[in-house]
Design a protein around this nucleic acid. Structure first.
Lengths: 135, 135
DNA sequence: AATCTAAATGCAAATCATTTGCATTTAGAT
DNA sequence: ATCTAAATGCAAATGATTTGCATTTAGATT
């Protein structure tokens, strides 16, 4: 994805196409797995950490980026546009993250194919919704 | 569960049956949904926050308590002993947390029965394991 | 029951990630 | 070229969790 296209995408969502945001999106587009704040700061010439946090938040609000939670202390960010619903599998030893493109809710654990993982030791599944007393 | 039984359980795991831990376990046993640190501090005469954090950690290490992550800023604790594998459904409006006793991985979203929730707006499922390069 | 030691506690200070206030800069509309 | 709201940079604030260290306590040992 080229800078120009990224800038257009940003403008379409009503946010300004600033250097910081373009750089962030470019970095996330370049990676196929969700990046942590630290990884992002490493890859992108992060102008300053307030900007990093603020930009990520606005990208998430704009629906361009998705926040992924893989346990505590493991907030990560990945591109949201052009991607369909998916989950992740995390190596508890080295932290490798791989996408699971099959929505596992529709299948069994056995159906999860992975070339890179040999053992699945745990999983976490949470639902979010509106309870009857709130609806 | 009475104090005496809690103390015995603690001793069985090799940890000391101190007042702080007995109180924590008693509070968690009394509730059927996972409690946040704040809720715990409210329910238990928390002696001091270092003790709270340290005690929770040792209870988790001992396998007595389980740490539940329902999104960021949402670390919660629930009893682990005497409970089988389950997930949770969270109301994004009021925060109500309900257990899902059916392991949803083995069923479809449609199979999730809940008396208290009317809409499921989102879900999160993550796997943890060991990747081949680590195994 | 008195003694002893490692484990647990209390407290205050440190740490770490994230957020905020505010003055300055900049994107992009006019 | 001008203008304004949005975005930025910086430094300070915040909030949750952790740590160092001196003191206390559980419970094992006499």
């Amino acid at each position: 994805m080229k800078t120009h296209a990224i800038a257009d995408m940003l403008r379409e969502t009503g946010t300004k196409a600033t250097k910081a945001r373009i750089g962030l999106v470019a970095a996330l587009v370049a990676e196929r797995y969700p990046l942590s704040i630290k990884e992002i700061s490493r890859k992108v010439k992060v102008p300053n950490q307030s900007t990093l946090y603020r930009s990520l938040r606005s990208l998430v609000e704009a629906g361009i980026v998705r926040e992924v939670h893989l346990g505590p202390d493991a907030v990560r960010y990945e591109m949201s546009v052009g991607r369909h619903h998916h989950h992740h599998i995390v190596c508890t030893s080295c932290g490798t993250v791989e996408d699971i493109d099959t929505c596992a809710i529709e299948g069994a654990v056995a159906g999860i194919k992975s070339k890179r993982f040999s053992v699945i030791t745990d999983h976490s599944l949470e639902f979010f919704g509106i309870c009857k007393s709130c609806a």
